[in-house]
């Protein structure tokens, strides 16, 4: 088993944190993991992305060029990474901020209105966790419990009080996938 993930969006959308949460969760579950950020002279509002590998064997290249999954939080990232997903892979699109459909017809595509759902929860900043919930529901690569176990490691003990709202966001994201599956089935 090897899951190779690209997560991309604007700086400030929490794409690095999503990647770290998945990496922590993989480690907690005894898998081999790596997290590689894009780094550069970038800033809030610029583009940000990270590569995550979760594998049952040693991780070879930590650079993900051919992703099993791409998680896309904004439109420039969709343009950039849409074709990085391998045939049969999965593409998660934040439909709140991306007004076009994917042009791929050889992969599974999930449209998740992350910012709208986060807004309904009363905290716009958990849009990334909504998406993470959707990803976990659709792929089951790691468990929600493992992700939550890594929460304070990534965000620090000082953010422990935000765990409930983040948990709720993950649940709402999962719910969105279940609804979508119901519609298409």
């Amino acid at each position: 088993m090897e899951e190779r993930i690209i997560i991309a969006g604007f700086g400030g959308q929490g794409v690095m944190a999503m990647g770290q949460l998945l990496t922590y969760a993989g480690m907690i579950e005894g898998k081999q993991v790596s997290w590689l950020p894009s780094y550069g002279p970038e800033m809030r509002g610029g583009t940000a992305n990270c590569n995550v590998v979760i594998s049952s064997d040693d991780v070879g290249s930590p650079v993900v060029l051919d992703a099993n999954t791409a998680i896309i939080m904004n439109k420039p990232s969709l343009d950039k990474f849409e074709n990085s997903v391998v045939k049969g892979g999965k593409l998660f699109i934040n439909s709140s901020l991306i007004d076009r459909k994917s042009e791929r017809d050889d992969i599974e595509i999930y449209y998740v209105p992350c910012n709208e759902i986060a807004g309904e929860l009363g905290n716009a900043r958990v849009a990334n966790m909504v998406m993470l919930g959707a990803y976990l529901e659709a792929t089951k690569v790691v468990s929600v419990d493992s992700v939550l176990a890594g929460f304070t490691k990534v965000f620090g003990e000082g953010k422990a009080h935000l765990l409930p709202i983040n948990k709720e966001a993950i649940e709402k994201g999962a719910e969105a996938i279940r609804k979508q599956a119901g519609v298409t089935a």
Partner: peptide, 10 residues
């Protein structure tokens, strides 16, 4: 190299 400095692993 920059990659090993920036990446996270267990």
């Amino acid at each position: 190299d920059g990659m090993i400095g920036q990446m996270m692993e267990p």
